[in-house]
Design a protein around this nucleic acid. Sequence first.
RNA 1: GCGAGGAUGGCGGAAUUGGCAGACGCACUGGAUUUAGGAUCCAGCCCCGCUCAGGGAUGGGGGUUCAAAUCCCCCUCCUCGCACCA
Length: 815
Amino acid sequence: MQFDHSKVEKKWQEYWKEKGLFRAAAKPRNKFYNLVMFAYPSGDIHMGHCKNYLIGDVYARYMMRRGFDVLHPFGWDAFGLPAENQAIKLGIHPEKWTLENIQISDESLKLLGISYDWDREVITCLPEYYKWTQWMFLLLYSRGLAYKKEAYVNWCPGCQTVLANEQVIEGRCYRANCQSIIEKRKLNQWFFRITDYAERLLDDLDKLGGWPDNVKTMQRNWIGKSDGCDIAFKVAERETRFKVFTTRPDTIYGVTFMSIAPEHPAVDDLIKGTTYEQEVRRYVQEATKKTERERTEKEKDGVATGCHAINPLSGEMVPIYVADYVLLEYGSGVVMGVPAHDERDFQFAKKYELPIKVVIKPPDSELHAASMTESYEETGIMVDSGEFTGLDSKQGIRAVTEVLTKKQMGGASVNYRLKDWLISRQRYWGAPIPIIYCEKCGLLPVPEKDLPVLLPKDVTDFVPKGKSPLAAVEDFINIECPNCRGKAKRDADTMDTFVCSSWYFLRYLDAHNEEEFCAKENADRWLPIDQYIGGGSEHATGHLIYFRFLTKVLFDAGYISTDEPANNLFNLGMVLKDGEVMSKSKGNAIPARQFINKHGADVARITILFAAPPEREMEWSDEGVTGAERFINRMYRLVTDNQEIISKQRPTHIAEDNEELYIKINQTIRKVTRDLQSFKYNTAIAALWELMNALYLTKNHDAVFGFGIYAMVHLLSPFAPHLSDELWSLIGGDGSLMKQPWLEHDDKHMKSKATTIVIQINGKVRSHIEVVGSIPEDKLRKMAFDDERVKRHIEGKNVKKTIYVPNKILNIVVQ
RNA sequence: GCGAGGAUGGCGGAAUUGGCAGACGCACUGGAUUUAGGAUCCAGCCCCGCUCAGGGAUGGGGGUUCAAAUCCCCCUCCUCGCACCA
């Protein structure tokens, strides 16, 4: 008899729904917040997506069976560019496209039998959700964490919008379908002051013991803290002074020039009315036009300003250059040039024949400027450095900083690579920024009572023109000032969708609350996320930083009681097909619905879970499906063929010929339990497969055998829940297995009485000795030396020593 | 360039963390059963060696150890992240 998946799976899905099996408790006693990253609704889901949901589901189901009140919600990150691009291409309104995709994907997900509490589904593009996204904006605004500034920002010519730093990958747009080279534009935009939280975001990584190290490392690098020193240089020809940041104040005597970023506002003052003006202006103009890529890839160059800086310690005068390898956004946008000890400065100095002055030498050799082919960046001994000469440069860093502090010419300083989060987007399909510009009152936040600022629906032209399509929607843009009733305009931009996704995990906790984004008591009930299951490390420096940031802001404002959102994070590997990521746009996607209709949800589950460890990439293979199908059918037959003898009781009598089987059953229970705990689903299924094979080979169909099948049904439930609920009912079980406590192993029957001890000679396996119970070493040794094969190998040789690892191995060393 | 991870049969992958390398699955081979099967069951399946006895194998080279896929050093290749951050 074959397992009729379509009938059985439907039956149980309906049963689960009817009984509200996955509805989270209103007042959990033993809470477990199990969260998979929500998804962008790009169409119907395919098998690549399913991996995330299935792995989350196995864990949720296991935890339910362990007696936890599990919250396992799902939702949709529904704003974003693809919807808008589809609208432009096909003339379908983004909202229609998005909501239809969600509907169809929801249906497919339900076919998979995932244990979601669907009552809590969130969809970020609906006003009842984005009202609170706007509210978050206002919260940040009121706390001084949202601000508008004119700045050089990343402009994607393909998407016709600005991007956050986190969305620029190797100078290109992060969106797979775009990848345009990013340009710089000077624009007036909204930023979130995430840099205020840099230190805490960095320090609190240490609290995240349940996060993978690689994600933490990536975040640490992204935040990029550097300890260093600010140094003030007076400009000889002007009344100004420049502050530079350096991590190597010990090289200060080696400064031979100074470079300033082309975009730096002080450039103007240095050159105005001088003979250098024209050339510098031309250089600045060209530099600003260049993309970051172009700037990076070309040889370092610059142009002299004619001004000079005075070294605060040596008093030397050095020329000031404008150079586009200096970043305006990092440090002060001005750097001191130390060619002998910085590779970039070295190249620059070589090009313009600037002096190279060695001030650090290696501890055990000499350095000569003339013969150097590259800079020496290590620490060493300070030379030619006034009062510091002879000092170890590590001490020198401290000493120079101290002297500068005393002279009030600088002091210790910290810089971060992390930049403020640019959240304005010049696109339609997003949450409008709740800000009003009044001719009289200036910039005003939309009053909270007026939220949400509804995204107008009657828009037909989504073609980006460098500003938001909303700017052209008269009755959206033009409003009455809430303060003075005068003429005012709304902000035409929408928010980065990463804002929507930085707080969605909170909305699940109180999804229908119209008064608050989430009542504090509900937040307190469920937070933090006990297990966050995410789709790959590409989120490490985007979403996973943003949502930590927002959590901290909400914590500081008193809305929640935890300052880290998730205790444990598990990162999944993607699903590949023919060596490429499975995706619709690549044309290699296997639609989930089609697969489930053909093979069934449990086959889909076993196929994906068994193919590879969850954290690793898995290559989709149709052969894997064959195995999974066999597994499901073999299991089904095992139960239906032996229905009468399946026993829910532990056997009271263990027949000698089934003693080993009973041990195997207990070992399997323990192995599967441990593997479930640590996401090793592939080996858990392998263990189940092994037990099933053993049961098939069992001759004596007694109580032990019956219990073995019973255990299989139990252990299978997180992996193949439809099948196991069906089998559970076939053997007379009541309702769903999900309501049954997890099976425990019998500690008294874990180890075979007989052990095989490996006999090695010089580390090579030569024989095996079977013993019952434990055996004293000398007795075993006697047995080993009596062994025919052993005798053969030690004949005529000296036994130097023997090493005995109790009950495992005896190694005889001979010469 | 910097940082992280990886390389194990024809393939996906195991290996209790230093103790029998290749669990489990796929593919393949043989047998049984079947009107038939791409169904099912049983068995075999790293390489060399006719068989036995042996020997060789975890990307390559060296080392530590009674014992190394596992620890240390050097090299090659692959994947990911960051990349003028002063």
